[in-house]
Design a binder for these strands. Structure first.
Length: 539
DNA sequence: GTTGAGCGTT
């Protein structure tokens, strides 16, 4: 009996696989040892090139005319979606295990928001472009047979599942969510998304996709608009994403920095007192977030970097519900880079020396310089969500650029938290859920300011508050917080009033400023040198 | 016949 020496990847120790009597090697024999493999290849010693092995109807044919497999060591071919970073040899030992594991990890996926008209056939048809669909069902009303607007799908491969989870889906004309059902306990999601800082405006999504595809399959590229000098790249393989973190890459001549797209921390449901002390339960095995006392650190790898409060939340789905965070106008428009919190419910420390940073929304792009503590910020830490998510549609539907939260293990449902629905943290106390307003939160804030709604409420919550409206409150607080903030921007040009955080739509000029930590308008993040950007709001 | 947050008569 002839044996064929096969290794998973070139250079690995080979396994001898028995060939059939006719000299062929059964694909099933190969797959018994190398699950997921679909073929063989070998390096031709003469040409130094890699040659593929002929494969037909479940059989692999020896390359030589005498039906001999020779002394070659063959290595496996895996479907493209299994392809790993080519130089990723360190993971060979785990790759196989991983494939086995991942095969076992296919789960039913719930598809929410389906059009009423979608049938199981059309649902299946849609998802078959991602891979083999083992099951597609629409939940219907028993009596009427009418669709309930959601359904389930199951894929044959984990790769397909991952791809589906990391993409958005336009099904029969409607944007739908695909999630792992009741996934609050799902802990296996690892971040596939990386934050790419120091982007320039001429680096478009195609550039990013093209560049990063050489490391692994890119499933999504997201560039916040208006331009904020960063973007997100999502890989199919979280290992690829992780392997790139911390690296600098040159794209179109520009040195960009890749870092973790800060995973949204576990929701702090306890909400108690002044102790804002949460360690994320979602550290994905690579970093834990120590948000202690009154300064939250957005730094990676558990380090306290920058000490700028940031908002780890604030996606369009407003996952900050039930948390002690706030966004007012986080995201692209309006107040953009700055989050002003209302701090209802006791929150944490409005009066101590360590007040939250003026720009709570800052997440560094990995620049090692010009990092300053920013404890002296507005006296309003977060709590309450005012218009979080900025321009994003609350349901994330219909927005082409909205990444899928669940790909990162973020479940916008808020799971069992009691604070679902109406925002319990609403600092306005005016019975408004600004998140539900389909408009620019900055405008909302400005409007409320006009109505003197914001200021009054905030006054009750902030002992430093001297009265006035919200905008003046912003000005005041960012005003006396600017000891650090102003200094961060030595190159500031005069056009931007750091106290005018309220001026949501004013385009700030912060060129030369690497740390925009004051009350600038959201637009000010457009400064070319800015690394003070918030990635978290786009996770 | 309407609707649009959710979690599945196996």
């Amino acid at each position: 009996m002839d044996f064929v020496q096969v290794s998973e990847e070139e250079g690995d120790e080979p396994i001898e696989l028995p060939a059939e009597e006719d000299g062929t090697l059964l694909l099933s024999t190969l797959q018994a040892q190398f699950p997921g493999s679909c073929g063989l290849k070998y390096r031709n010693m003469d040409t130094k090139a890699v040659r593929g092995v002929r494969s037909n109807e479940g059989r692999l044919f020896p390359p030589s005319v005498d039906s001999s497999w020779g002394e070659y060591i063959y290595f496996c071919v895996f479907p493209k979606e299994n392809k790993r970073k080519s130089d990723d040899n360190l993971e060979n030992s785990t790759a196989k295990t991983k494939r086995i594991e991942t095969r076992l990890r296919c789960t039913d996926l719930i598809v929410l928001g389906l059009p009423w008209k979608t049938t199981e056939d059309s649902l299946r048809e849609y998802f078959e472009s991602y891979g083999e669909v083992l099951m597609a069902q629409i939940k219907k009303d028993v009596k009427s047979g009418q669709s309930k607007g959601f359904g389930f799908v199951r894929f044959g491969s984990y790769e397909a599942q991952m791809r589906v989870l990391s993409n958005r889906h336009l099904i029969d004309g409607r944007w739908c969510e695909v999630k792992v059902p009741n996934s609050k306990g799902m802990g296996h999601q690892v971040p596939c998304k990386v934050f790419v800082g120091r982007c320039t405006e001429d680096i478009n999504s195609d550039d990013l996709r093209e560049y990063f595809s050489k490391f692994g399959e890119v499933t999504d590229v997201f560039i916040p608009r208006p331009f904020r000098a960063f973007s997100f790249v999502t890989f199919l393989d979280p290992d690829v994403a992780q392997s790139l973190c911390g690296e600098d890459h040159i794209i179109k001549g520009v040195s960009v920095h890749v870092s973790n797209a800060a995973p949204k921390a576990e929701q702090n449901r306890s909400h108690q007192g002044q102790n804002f002390n949460y360690n994320s339960g979602n550290n994905f095995g690579m970093h834990s977030y120590h948000h202690q006392g009154n300064h939250m650190n957005s730094g990676r790898s558990g380090h306290h970097r920058g000490n700028n409060q940031h908002n780890a939340h604030g996606s369009g789905d407003n996952p900050t519900i039930g948390n002690s965070h706030s966004n007012i106008g986080s995201g692209g428009y309006g107040m953009g880079g700055n989050n002003f919190g209302g701090n209802s419910g006791g929150g944490y420390n409005n009066s101590g020396s360590h007040n939250s940073g003026g720009n709570m929304n800052r997440q560094d792009g990995g620049m090692p310089y010009n990092r300053q503590n920013n404890y002296h910020g507005m006296n309003q830490p977060h709590n309450g969500n005012v218009g979080s998510g900025g321009w994003m549609n609350q349901q994330n539907r219909g927005h082409l650029d909205m990444p899928n939260l669940q790909a990162l293990g973020i479940n916008p449902q808020g799971s069992s938290s009691s604070n679902q629905g109406q925002n319990m943290n609403n600092p306005l106390g005016v019975g408004l859920n600004l998140n539900s307003l389909p408009m620019n939160p900055a405008l909302v804030a400005a409007a409320l300011n006009q109505w003197s709604l914001l200021g009054n409420q905030l006054q009750n919550q902030n002992q430093d508050q001297q009265g006035g409206n919200f905008l003046s409150w912003v000005a005041q607080n960012s005003g006396h917080s600017n000891a650090s903030n102003m200094n961060n921007c030595g190159g500031r040009k005069g056009s931007n009033n750091p106290n005018s955080g309220s001026a949501g739509m004013i385009k700030g000029d912060n060129s030369g400023c690497n740390d925009q930590q004051n009350g600038n308008s959201g637009w000010s993040n457009q400064s070319s040198g800015s690394n003070s950007v918030d990635k978290s709001n786009f996770l």
